[in-house]
Write a protein that binds this DNA or RNA. Sequence first.
DNA 1: GCTACGGCTTAACAAAAGTCAATTACTCGC
DNA 2: GCGAGTAATTGACTTTTGTTAAGCCGTAGC
Lengths: 235, 235
Amino acid sequence: MADNIDTATAHSAVLLSSLPRAVADHILQRSASKAFKRGETIFCQGDEAQHIYVVLDGWVKLFRITPTGAEAVVGVFTKGRSFGEAVAFENISYPVTAEAVTDTRLLLVRASLLTTMMRDQPEIAMAILSSTFRHLHFLVTQVEQLKAHTGAQRVAEFLLELCDAESGSCTIILPYDKSLIAGRLGMQPASLSRAFNRLETLGVKITQNQAMIGDIGQLREYMMEDRSAPWKKAD
Amino acid sequence: MADNIDTATAHSAVLLSSLPRAVADHILQRSASKAFKRGETIFCQGDEAQHIYVVLDGWVKLFRITPTGAEAVVGVFTKGRSFGEAVAFENISYPVTAEAVTDTRLLLVRASLLTTMMRDQPEIAMAILSSTFRHLHFLVTQVEQLKAHTGAQRVAEFLLELCDAESGSCTIILPYDKSLIAGRLGMQPASLSRAFNRLETLGVKITQNQAMIGDIGQLREYMMEDRSAPWKKAD
DNA sequence: GCTACGGCTTAACAAAAGTCAATTACTCGC
DNA sequence: GCGAGTAATTGACTTTTGTTAAGCCGTAGC
C-alpha cells in the first residue's frame, strides 16, 4: 500500500468508508496491494479463505464451476467493491472462483487482522456487516431480476446501472467483454446479441463497446414492466 | 418467550447458536414471540426495519413486488432460520415483503437491542455475521441454480434439499403449496407440473403433497449435469 | 497491405418455458 | 355427502432462449 490514489480509493470503499480515519489507516498500513493480469486467477473455489479483497482498479468476476465444468457468474466487481468477506471469518474455503477480467489491482486485507481488531472495536464489525449487507442486497436484486425479468429487460437494467444520469440520453462504455456481460446476466452471448437488437426499437444503439441510450426514462420504463407486458406493446 | 420448545428452537437457530448460553438467554428474555396466521403479512416492502425475525415454527416467504404487481419470491424460510438481519442495522426499510405461508410462530428480536449489545460484546457481531453469510451463501447458490440449471433440475435440487438421506430412496412431504414452490424456483405453476412429470422417468413420484424418490443418487446426478447434458441422455 | 485469429453477430433449428383456457382434483363448509 | 371455491394438471399454442455453425469484422502481427 503506497500510492495516494489507491489510498483514496480504499478509503472510499464500502468496507472501509464507514470506519474512523485512524482505524482505516491502521488497516491499510497492514495490507498489501497486488496486481493481477487480465485472465489471471485470484483464488479458486475450494481455496482456504485468508483475505478480504478490495478492488482498487479494474474488474473482477466471481463465478462457480459445476462438477461438469459449466460456469455461472455470480458477480462482477469494480473499484471500491470488496469480496471474500463472507467466508474469511468462518475459516472455511471460498465457494467461488475469482478472476481478473481486466488488468487489476487489489488490496489484500488479512482476515485475521480484522477478526482481531473486531474484538476491541465493534465499529469494525459494523463496517463489515455493512458491506456484506450491500452484497446481500445486490444478490437479492439479482435473484429478483432472474426470476421476474426477461433477458432484454435484464440487459436494459444493466445499461441503466452504468449510466449515471436519471433521464435524457447518454453514451456509455461497456466495461468488459460481451460474453462476460452475457454470463453476468445469465444468458448466452447469442441471446445477448438478440436482446441488444430488441432494445434498438427503444432507442438503444450498440456500436462496438459503446452503447448510446436515446431516452433513459423510456428504457427504465421498459425494464420495470411485467414479464408479460413488454411484448404486448408491440401490438 | 415462554415455551420450552421455542427456547430450544431459538437456541439452535443460526443467529444464536454460536453465542454463549448466557448471552443468548439475555436476548431471548427481551424478545417476544408472535403468532401469524397462514397468509398474514409480517412486514411490507418499504416498512421501517425494527426487528430481526427467527422462525420458531411454520414457513415464511420473502418476496418482492414490482411496481406493476408481479411477484418474485426471494426466499422461503422455516424453523431455525432468521431474516431481516440485513436491514435492521442500517436504519433503512425492508427491501422485501414477508408473509406467513403456514400458521407460523416467530421470535421478534429488536434490532436496537442487538446493536446496543454489540458495542460491548463482539461475539454478537460475529453471530450476526455468521447468519448473514449463511443467507448470502444461500443466495449465491440460488443465483447459480437459476443461471445454470433447467427448471426440472431446480426441482430435483429442491426435493433433494428436503430429504435428509444421502442415497437410497425416501418419501418426503412438500412443505407448502406447489404454486409457492414454483415461485421459489422461478417458474410458473404449469411448468412445475411438467417438471414433475419429467422427473417421473427418474423414479420420482408425486402424489398430492407427497414425493417419493426412488433413487436419491440418480436424482442428484441428474441435478448436477450440465444444462446441455440432460437431454443428450435421452438418445 | 495481407492474413490469421478471436470476438461478435446472424441464422436456423430444437428445447424449454410462458400463457391461456379448459378440465380435473381437492378442501372446506354446510 | 354435496356443492362452491380454490389449487393443480393438461393441452394447444406462442415466445423465449439455448445450441450449433457459419460468416463478419476489427485487431495484431507479419
